[in-house]
């Protein structure tokens, strides 16, 4: 494909979806500056992989998928230090809750803190289904899972989240 057309498409996608991609990465990583960098990397990767975009998924979901992969790659590289910090942490860590989320309110902050304590697959499916409000089919496309797995993992993830909220001492009447 012509380079200029590719560039034009990236510009268009940036105007349309950069807010969503940034917020998605922010939810995954919890760090505003890093979320900005990874948003940048997502669009760059989309440009370089443009030939592989076949339109099977929507362009937005394709970008979500790239953003997730880019973020996971980043976390893997960062893992040794992160792992050590998380291993020694008994209480919810302030660092894990970005200022932007703390600004939203106490409930949002509590929910986010508990979400970040769950295993990766639970976090992924909850972010996409409950926060980004993607359909089961769209979530399956982004995560490259089948729909049954999305449903099962979401069910288990929400149960684990509620359990985590009880454990952290947050009051939640639906638990």
């Amino acid at each position: 494909m012509d380079e200029d057309l590719k560039k034009q498409k990236i510009q268009e996608w940036y105007q349309l979806y950069s807010d969503d991609i940034y917020r998605f990465v922010l939810m995954m990583i919890g760090d505003h500056d890093q979320a900005k960098d990874l948003t940048h990397d997502t669009y760059l990767k989309a440009y370089n992989s443009f030939e592989y975009f076949q339109g099977v998924t929507s362009d937005k979901n394709w970008l979500y998928r790239i953003a997730r992969n880019v973020t996971i790659d980043y976390m893997r590289k960062k893992k040794p230090i992160r792992f050590m910090i998380e291993s020694f942490s008994t209480f919810p860590s302030e660092e894990n809750c970005p200022e932007k989320i703390m600004e939203l309110g106490e409930n949002e902050e509590q929910l986010y803190r508990c979400l970040k304590k769950l295993k990766r697959s639970y976090q992924d499916v909850i972010i996409l289904r409950k926060i980004k409000e993607l359909s089961i089919q769209e979530t399956a496309e982004v995560l490259e899972w089948n729909e049954t797995k999305v449903k099962n993992t979401l069910f288990r993830g929400l149960a684990a989240l509620k359990q985590q909220m009880v454990k952290e001492g947050y009051n939640h009447e639906t638990i």
Binding site: K7, I10, Q11, Y14, S18, D19, Y22, R23, L26, M27, K36, T39, H40, Y43, L44, Y47, K100, I101, E103, L104, G105, N107, E108, L111, Y112, I126, K130, I131, K132, E133
Partner: peptide
């Protein structure tokens, strides 16, 4: 559910958004 949805209302500051955009274009 509403609390979940409010988590998706964090703002991507306009200036920072422009800054990231120009970095992307430069990288391209």
């Amino acid at each position: 559910d509403r609390t979940f949805q409010r988590l998706d209302t964090t703002k991507f500051n306009e200036n920072e958004k422009k800054e990231v955009f120009s970095t992307i274009m430069h990288s391209l």
